[in-house]
């Protein structure tokens, strides 16, 4: 089945099997290995990508559903001039990374949420920031620095 979509700014058409999971399509079909397979059951959030502005678990989403949509993966963040997005910079600065396996998912969740908040002119509370990241598991950091980094994204907007 043929689907047409935009990924990380590039328009692509591909023939895929209707049962293909988005995570497998991204990692194996498109070779974008930055999206991480942590559980394949929608619990850990390591495979989070952004589809039309919404953070989704790509292991719980069929690839055919991106037809006509715009997807961003971790590889799509940053620009030529600034290879790291502000969310990524804050994660580095605040020490939010240890083993790093959950990190792309943490970054994408934060990116989707912060873009939405900024667009709506909202500065979320710490509780709201925590809530936004509740679907992403991490075993190394105890989350504190991830939450700090995420909050710092908004603080700079002020």
């Amino acid at each position: 089945m043929k689907i047409t979509f935009k990924i990380n700014g590039e328009s692509i058409s591909k023939d895929i099997k209707p049962s293909l999971l988005l995570i497998d399509f991204i990692r194996d079909g498109l070779g974008l290995k930055g999206t991480k397979p942590g559980c394949l059951e929608g619990e850990c959030g390591a495979c989070t990508v952004i589809v039309d502005g919404l953070a989704i678990n790509s292991c719980m989403y069929l690839a055919i559903n991106i037809n006509g949509k715009e997807i961003t993966t971790i590889e799509g963040l940053g620009t030529k001039e600034n290879p790291l997005d502000k969310v990524q910079e804050k994660m580095v600065e605040h020490g939010a990374v240890q083993c790093g396996f959950c990190t792309p998912g943490m970054v994408m969740t934060t990116k989707a949420y912060s873009d939405k908040c900024i667009a709506e002119g909202i500065i979320p509370t710490q509780e709201e920031v925590k809530k936004s990241l509740e679907g992403n598991l991490c075993r190394c950091t105890g989350y504190a620095k991830i939450i700090e980094a995420s909050e710092a994204v908004y603080k700079q907007e002020r």
Partner: peptide
């Protein structure tokens, strides 16, 4: 003095290669 992680940029940009990759 606090120093950011040597490999953090690789990690946050999804460029690190794990066994799965």
């Amino acid at each position: 003095k606090s120093h950011t992680k040597f490999d953090a940029k690789e990690r946050v940009s999804g460029k690190s290669v794990y066994g799965h990759d």
